[in-house]
């Protein structure tokens, strides 16, 4: 009987199911760690991602990682998630993609839920309220700094400047929502590029 169960256990381990489960867990756990130790996402994630994925586990080469990263930047969605999905899909197909994506997102969900629940109870406290009034000033300054940085990258020609001005007018003057502004700008850009090629 004991021999028999040993054989069953041995076969189970070698059958691949257990190994698949372990490598799946490894994918999830690695990206959970990356999500947990990255502050700010995007570019901030790259060094840790490289250390874990390229150097330690050799799931992707440096070139592949840079490819994923640059495609992640020009496709819809959050860059950190896009990169995680790429590596997960490369390693284990659909389920790999789901595992890495959920792994990288899970720490946010846990940490933010805890903080949000905590702040909900303390927001009325005068010191906390005062601190956040000050923080709001800094947030405004941070957003303006982001605009300055994005300006250097985003507006390189007259067409870009025109889209910028028209978008502002549509937003502030006509109260158009951001969804429509983005869609109109996308269509406008494609038409403009087509007309250039003719």
């Amino acid at each position: 009987m004991k021999v028999y169960t040993n054989i069953v256990v041995f076969k189970l381990i070698n059958s691949g199911i257990v190994q698949k489960m372990i490598s799946g867990l490894d994918l999830f756990w690695t990206f959970f760690k990356i999500g947990l130790f990255t502050f700010g996402g995007g570019a901030a994630m790259l060094p840790l991602l490289r250390a874990e994925v390229v150097e330690k586990r050799q799931w992707a080469s440096d070139e592949e990682l840079l490819d994923y990263y640059s495609i992640g930047q020009c496709t819809p969605g959050i860059i950190a998630i896009n990169t995680a999905t790429f590596i997960g899909y490369k390693m284990r197909g659909y389920w790999g993609a789901v595992l890495t994506t959920f792994g990288v997102v899970m720490p946010s969900v846990i940490v933010i839920t805890l903080i949000a629940a905590l702040l909900q109870n303390y927001m009325q406290h005068p010191a906390v309220a005062a601190a956040f009034a000050g923080i709001r000033i800094v947030v405004v300054a941070l957003i303006l700094e982001a605009v300055v940085e994005l300006w250097k990258k985003g507006i390189r020609n007259r067409f870009g400047a025109a889209v910028f001005v028209v978008s502002l007018v549509l937003l502030a003057g006509f109260g158009l929502g951001p969804v429509w502004v983005v869609l109109l700008a996308a269509v406008g850009g494609v038409i403009y590029l087509r007309s250039l090629r003719k």
């Binding site: 982001a146 990258k153 507006i155 001005v165 978008s167 700008a185 996308a186 850009g189 590029l193």
Partner: peptide, 11 residues
């Protein structure tokens, strides 16, 4: 091409 400057306006 068109979205980047629009996003800047949004922010």
């Amino acid at each position: 091409f068109g979205v980047r400057p629009a996003v800047l306006a949004l922010i």
